[in-house]
């Protein structure tokens, strides 16, 4: 009963705020429309300088092939290797292909390791195509058949949007009440800890529902990407993730005195949680110690599960493990959030 009043208050406050409603609507839209274009980890537009000393028909054909390839941009013919190196140092070329006496030297700028190695692998595939007999091994790519990086990243974007919206807003909310002094007034009322915390959490869950719906719609409208698995399960996962992040935000704010402090602490954990979740790079590539931390990282379970549902078309059976883990961690954090809120010191 009191819960109803507290929740109404939260919504009124959000609506009255000049900034929050705009943020809640605009943020997912901007992120969903822009970020998939930014988050392209696939190697493209690699600039290749060719140092062709042989000047054979073969090498001419190779240059044409490079220019025609999706991966490469032909950077120009250079007379000497040293001259091409200049381009690399200036940053205007990424790979040098030197053709001398029928031998091919591929030198790639590997400061960005992925780009350097992938680029040189692609290039060596083109170059060595005439020499290697066609491989007896065929490849069947499952699920993401077009090799579309967006399909891989969009579920991850859901996670990022949810994390920022349901993590930071509640944090600012409670610290704001502390700084305004209104929390003291609430503390002398008979409101139970549970209803106070729930009243803080529920509005953000509803916002999370709204946000995830916007994200799903945009993924469909803008990119034509729809989940291969059941939709309801995505909502369940989103709610569980929202439970975790909103509880986590409340915990941080319960222990912080100022907004700045809360934001910094929050930001620190969010960055760690995000980087160690397999969102950008596979968890399995991590060293042992880093991989161990992913067992308690709710984001990892979310990412694994939502990609399974979205891309691989899995259902509850395939993701039961992740759903349970996420629910467990979320419930634990929820209890901690209530526990850490002190009405009497």
């Amino acid at each position: 009963m009191t819960l109803k009043h507290l929740i109404r208050k939260e919504f009124l406050q959000i609506r009255r705020n000049s900034f929050l409603p705009k943020l809640i609507v605009m943020f997912p839209i901007v992120v969903m429309c822009l970020m998939p274009w930014v988050m392209q980890m696939d190697v493209k537009n690699v600039v290749v300088d060719v140092v062709d000393i042989d000047h054979t028909v073969e090498s001419q054909r190779l240059v044409q092939q490079i220019a025609a390839s999706n991966y490469f941009i032909f950077g120009g013919q250079k007379d000497t290797y040293a001259e091409a190196m200049k381009d690399i140092e200036k940053g205007s070329a990424d790979i040098i292909l030197e053709i001398r006496d029928g031998q091919y030297l591929i030198a790639a700028n590997a400061v960005n390791g992925t780009k350097g190695s992938m680029g040189s692998v692609y290039l060596s595939q083109i170059v060595s195509a005439p020499f290697s007999a066609s491989s007896a091994i065929s490849v069947l790519t499952l699920y993401n058949k077009q090799q579309d990086y967006k399909l891989f990243m969009i579920p991850a974007l859901f996670a990022i949007v949810m994390m920022l919206m349901t993590g930071f807003l509640p944090t600012l909310n409670i610290v704001g009440e502390k700084e305004a002094g209104t929390i003291e007034q609430i503390n002398v009322t008979p409101v139970s800890k549970w209803s106070f915390i729930l009243a803080k959490l529920i509005p953000y869950w509803l916002i999370a529902l709204f946000v995830i719906t916007v994200c799903l719609l945009l993924a469909w409208i803008v990119y034509g990407i729809t989940p291969a698995g059941p939709l309801w399960l995505i909502y369940v996962l989103a709610m569980l993730l929202a439970l975790f992040f909103s509880s986590f935000g409340l915990i941080v704010s319960n222990y912080s005195d100022t907004m700045q402090q809360a934001m910094f602490v929050m930001w620190f954990f969010v960055v760690c949680i995000m980087l160690l979740s397999g969102l950008f790079t596979p968890t399995r590539s991590m060293p042992e110690w880093a991989y161990m931390t992913t067992y308690i990282n709710p984001m990892r379970y979310f990412i694994d599960a939502i990609r399974t549902i979205f891309i691989r078309g899995g259902g509850l059976y395939e993701t039961a493990h992740q759903v349970l883990a996420l629910a467990g961690i979320g419930a634990l954090m929820g209890c901690w959030a209530v526990q850490s809120y002190k009405k009497n010191s």
Partner: peptide, 22 residues
């Protein structure tokens, strides 16, 4: 310190606190 919610109206503040006391 003044501790009603400044971003709520007079009526909303009263309803909130009355509601809290059931």
């Amino acid at each position: 310190r003044f501790s009603l919610y400044e971003d709520l109206t007079v009526a909303e503040n009263i309803r909130l606190f009355a509601g809290i006391y059931g």
